[in-house]
């Protein structure tokens, strides 16, 4: 059996998406939440690159994947900066300790 990367793409995307989404729901540590977001972003990068390849436009998919990597790196940096500030003012990075959720 000869699997091309494209054949494994759906499995990989769903797997990464599942792990990231699950982590997003259960994780309490802010930095770990950012790690969970990064896992989700990997799912998106893989999905876009594979979608480009599947439709015969590899270079289009690759270009989108590149942009996603750049954009989400900025988002990760911003999130980590926020985390440091949270740590300074709350003394913890436990998101369930952040204030009260009135709602």
């Amino acid at each position: 059996m000869n699997l091309s990367p494209l054949d494994t793409a759906i499995f990989l995307v769903l797997g990464l998406f599942g792990v990231g989404f699950y982590a997003l729901l259960i994780v309490r540590h802010l930095i770990k939440l950012v790690i969970a977001l990064q896992i989700l972003v990997k799912a998106a990068v893989v999905a876009l690159a594979a979608a480009g390849a599947a439709s015969g436009k590899l270079e289009l998919g690759a270009s989108l994947a590149l942009s996603v990597i750049v954009v989400d790196t900025v988002v990760a940096v911003v999130a980590l900066a926020l985390a440091l500030q949270v740590r300074k003012h709350f003394g913890t990075l436990d998101v369930s300790e952040l204030g009260t959720l009135r709602g």
């Binding site: 990068v45 390849a53 590899l58 690759a62 994947a65």
Partner: peptide
């Protein structure tokens, strides 16, 4: 590595 095998070399390098 996976992206590289797919043929998307540049995103692979950036990743």
């Amino acid at each position: 590595l996976w992206l590289y095998i797919l043929g998307a070399q540049q995103p692979a390098v950036i990743e």
